[in-house]
Design a binder for these strands. Structure first.
Lengths: 348, 348
DNA sequence: ATGAAAGCGCTAACAG
DNA sequence: CTGTTAGCGCTTTCAT
């Protein structure tokens, strides 16, 4: 096995406790002793056993993160930011991908509870808070992000989804679209909010969705939604009044939609303008560069990390009442919606 | 606090030991007793404290994963696959992103050692194995992937990099390119191998790199390499004999290179063919769909997971001598290299 | 089949 | 300042 506290203590003719204190900069320990300890620790390459420490302190120095799909750049980015922000304070990140499966998600949360992680960060796939009750009962601090869940005693960091939907839709209207369709996402708060924003923006201009112009994405196969977006767009093209603009739930579905449009021999944005959501990397390099709503993923990650660190510290605001932290979304117009002569966009 | 073994024991008038045994399907426990225990456990929603269990068994039920950049789809994909494959056996995945920084990477590995994880999976940024000696000394089972490291007593799963480079380069030659340049990656084994494969394929056709035709990517800013690829391609275009084909270290740099080429008013692939490596999602949707080498990321993840589970099981082949598992790479030709009339490719 | 004793490596409370 | 005594919650002998 590895070097233990005991070994160092025996080595130096000290007690285990003194060594332990010396290592944690405890106030009452002789400067001289501390140096001796530190020296030997360095030589032996001692590392305190965090498992043991956790057992007694009740702090795991671990944050649990559960996302629907780690391969999605939005979630991968969040994971990356949180990971590096909490690392500086000595925390590690235990990540699991729920694959958009509510049961799997619950199971993973159970695991995190068993592991006694300090905080759980969650973009939930649940349709209701019921399945997450256990978490609250165990007084596990929890931060939801991106997707809200009513009736759960948890913090939230994310966007004002209705604003997101309105932003995208209003942009299409400005660009001269009048028959604007929406490819809506699954049964989670973000999809509902974006849909509401879409309707709101239309209404604000005296418009409304034409028959069949709200097309659900469906679960057809691919997780990211390209294929589903393709199919949804095909259905839109087959409606009595085909759209001249489409606001898509996310960027992958927008890519699928664009492909369907091009395959149908139509032009983007001249015949149909397309806007997505998420501002996925590479949007700039696409066949038709894709306009999108940037959710401010990095900011969300940063704020999550800060909140998590607050909550993880036992002494701290453990009992903070649930906060809601809204990060501003931003329109990123590109060629897929610019029906006026294309304004050169230099972002790389 | 949560429910403990003790609570259940008292509840049922049993000893802690019996309950513990009942829960782990220990042979000598009465069927009747087991049922009573299981019932009460269900009612109380008991979850064994994994921290305590780990302390005594020495098994953390945790795998550590260190990658250079979690936002890179290749690594995100690996993380996702490993996570779901090990989850079924009860393991969790502790992930950290080293940001391509060797020091940070070492620091993260120290943390994982302190946490007593069962296995470390690593795509290393180290230029030598020296800094990782501690890991071996502590007998921590380790699996390297993607990037090799000589002189380390560790398993490896990944590609034959030279084959990867040769595959890409040979394809360019077949497409009629004769002045083939290479944008090479940083100082890691994959870059060296791909470069070697590039030279080898050229040599096999009696060709060799022209002056200035091996352009290093450089560390200029963006982590994924789009900007760096852009700049490298500009340098290539400025050589006395500009290339008619470019093999890029990875897909992001290839996207940058393509942009530079288009910005210079040249056509892809007619003037310059471009091929990347990694077969990043969305390659199909790009302005010019990008030919690439698929590294078989999913297969790599699967094999990693299987190996990891073997190693994690204390009873098992803990002492397996280092294995090398090579996953076949595959050419995925798209428009960026097809100088003949484009063959329709239906992959979505 | 069941349970008492011992201990995993560490820290918290107290005594010297 | 230093060390002793008690655990954290669980599993592992080893009696009964």
């Amino acid at each position: 096995m590895a070097v233990r506290l005991k070994d160092i203590a025996q080595d130096l003719g000290l007690s285990v406790v003194s060594v332990s204190k010396a290592l944690r900069d405890h106030p009452d320990i002789a400067e001289e002793t501390r140096r001796r300890v530190l020296k030997r620790v360095g030589e032996l390459g001692y590392q305190p056993n965090l498992t043991a420490r956790s057992l007694v302190t009740g702090q795991a120095w671990t944050i649990g993160l559960v996302v629907p799909d780690l391969l999605h750049p939005f979630f991968a980015g969040i994971a990356k930011v949180i990971s590096s922000d909490i690392r500086a304070q000595g925390y590690g990140l235990l990540i699991s991908s729920s694959d958009e499966d509510p049961d799997l998600e619950r199971q993973e949360i159970e695991r995190l509870l068993a592991r006694q992680v300090d905080v759980i960060v969650l973009a939930s796939t649940q349709s209701s808070a019921a399945g997450l009750r256990r978490m609250v009962e165990q007084k596990m601090p929890c931060v939801l992000f991106d997707r809200r869940l009513d009736g759960l005693d948890a913090h939230f960091v994310g966007n004002e989804d209705q604003e997101v939907g309105a932003l995208a839709t209003a942009h299409l209207i400005e660009q001269g679209c009048r028959r604007i369709a929406h490819i809506r996402g699954p049964e989670v708060s973000t999809a509902a909010g974006r849909l509401a924003g879409y309707r709101q923006a239309l209404a604000a201009h005296g418009l409304e969705p034409l028959p069949g112009h709200v097309a659900p994405l469906g679960r057809s196969g691919d997780h990211r939604g390209e294929r589903a977006g393709y199919e949804a767009a095909q259905r839109l093209l087959a409606t009595p009044t085909p759209p001249d603009g489409i606001f898509c739930y996310n960027d992958p579905s927008a890519m699928g939609a664009m492909r369907a449009i091009l395959d149908a021999g139509l032009r983007i944005p001249e015949d149909i303008a397309v806007i997505g959501c998420g501002n996925v990397s590479y949007s700039d390099f696409l066949r038709v560069p894709l306009s999108s709503i940037d959710q401010g993923g990095e900011a969300i990650g940063r704020r999550l990390a800060a909140l998590v660190l607050d909550l993880a510290d036992k002494k701290n605001g453990r009992r903070l009442s649930p906060t809601t932290d809204l990060v501003a979304a931003r329109l990123v117009p590109r060629a897929s919606t610019l029906r006026q002569p294309l304004v050169k966009d230099d972002t790389v």
